[in-house]
Design a protein around this nucleic acid. Structure first.
Lengths: 248, 248
DNA sequence: ACGCCCTTGCGCACACTGTGCGGAGCGCCG
DNA sequence: CGGCGCTCCGCACAGTGTGCGCAAGGGCGT
């Protein structure tokens, strides 16, 4: 610490180098950005106000002038994640399916870029009403409404799609978090866990067959993205069906 | 504390009432059950090992003989929640759609009975491989496979449905948690938040129309269950479509 | 029958958390 | 130039998960 400085000098100059009002030295944006870095680098457990403070060359409680709570801070960071997703230019009006698919894929990838978000969504919920989330909602509802759905139908469709994306991406992200915490490579982790999984599953015939089939190697990652796209298209098929049904 | 007892008596009798080996006095099941009670009653923030200990007339660290971690404890409680869902008797082989729907609805209701689960799923993931979760997976895959899907298709279908259920129920449960923490009634909370929501949304035309339409009252709860069932049927429609497509 | 060991529960302690409070430095307005 | 207010920070408090070592008995070897 700076203990020796305090002992050497008087209390007058102990921290003269603190550049008080040249610029506020701490801003909401900086805090949110630093929190995002910390979360991406070390995960949710490493985010403490003290660590965030030191990373900003500030005290532990200095952020409370700009942010009410740790919870509010987290809400802000979450919306920042949503902010990474660009809304499409409405000029290039493409197929509604590709438009919805684009948003969904971007959302998934944003979640996988910031896996800590899974551990946080259950506390913050989608209820935070941050501007970026609202923007995404507006776009998706817009795509569905111009496709021919009523406004209420469009909202339900959006809820269905986004629930699917959030649910699946959360599971994936949680898995990534566990993986990261274990410190092993993906292959190591799978190898280590596979026997236990096989044994846990052996009382269930279909799961056993499934796991056995998956044993004879296949690419885990590519299967995952296929699986995501497949489920998404399944939902879109369901939506398209009711669109056609309404048109007749 | 029991300080005066120690001062008054010798250290010999300070805790003679502890019934050492008459019965183990603490079991995994008891611990999990008590944790569930505590979680249901006071939510995730109230679950600490100390509180759990006092509730079991035990010390704070006495559970660590039966449970490795707090995390492991939470995994156990989560699987206990899945355990509340009964698997259907395979004898009465009904329509695959109603079978899947039954599981999905039960899952949703279990989540809403224990809203704290939302804040926990992102840390534990579905990756815990607890026996009850496996049982549910087996049933759902079974329903899909006997309906005519291949094993791999059945797994993907299950993933799609369960991701949807988990995602949506998590959002709802998170909302319930926020509501409970606020201490207000649902109506009070909505009334208090509505102006802010309207203002946040006013930059987005479609969301504004949507919220305005929802302002002229309708039953929030019934709309929610309708919305859930609607999205679920949408997914099932999509699945059924590929079943028919494969049959041709 | 007696003494030893080994399991099991628990008190203590440590490092760490979020955050309320009061004070201190600085810029700005009157 | 004096007072006000906004930021920033050190301190302190209550509370957390959990590692460590001790104590108390039941079960077993002799």
């Amino acid at each position: 610490m700076a203990a020796e400085q305090q002992q050497a000098g008087g209390s007058v100059w102990t921290r003269p180098q603190r550049p008080r009002r040249e610029q506020p030295a701490l801003s909401r944006e900086q805090i949110v950005a630093a929190a995002m870095e910390l979360l991406d680098a070390e995960g949710i457990d490493a985010l403490s106000m003290r660590k965030l403070g030191t990373r900003l060359n500030a005290g532990a409680t200095s952020m409370y002038s700009h942010v009410a709570n740790k919870d509010e801070l987290i809400e802000l960071v979450v919306d920042e994640v949503y902010g990474e997703i660009a809304t499409q230019d409405p000029a290039e009006a493409s197929d509604w399916r590709t438009e919805v698919t684009t948003v969904a894929q971007s959302l998934r990838q944003a979640f996988l870029r910031h896996p800590w978000i899974a551990s946080v969504l259950g506390q913050v919920g989608m209820s935070s009403l941050g501007p970026n989330l609202l923007r995404l909602s507006e776009q998706m509802i817009g795509a569905l409404e111009t496709a021919g759905f009523s406004l209420a139908e469009a909202e339900r469709g959006m809820n269905t799609v986004s629930s699917y994306v959030v649910g699946l991406a959360s599971t994936e992200a949680a898995w990534l978090t566990v993986l990261a915490r274990s410190g092993q490579s993906q292959q190591e982790w799978v190898d280590a866990f596979w026997p236990a999984a096989l044994q846990a599953v052996q009382a269930f015939p279909r799961l056993s067959r499934l796991y056995a089939a998956q044993s004879e190697g296949f690419d885990v990652d590519s299967n995952r993205v296929d699986s995501f796209s497949d489920g998404l298209e399944c939902i879109l098929d369901g939506l398209e069906a009711r669109l056609r049904r309404a048109a007749e």
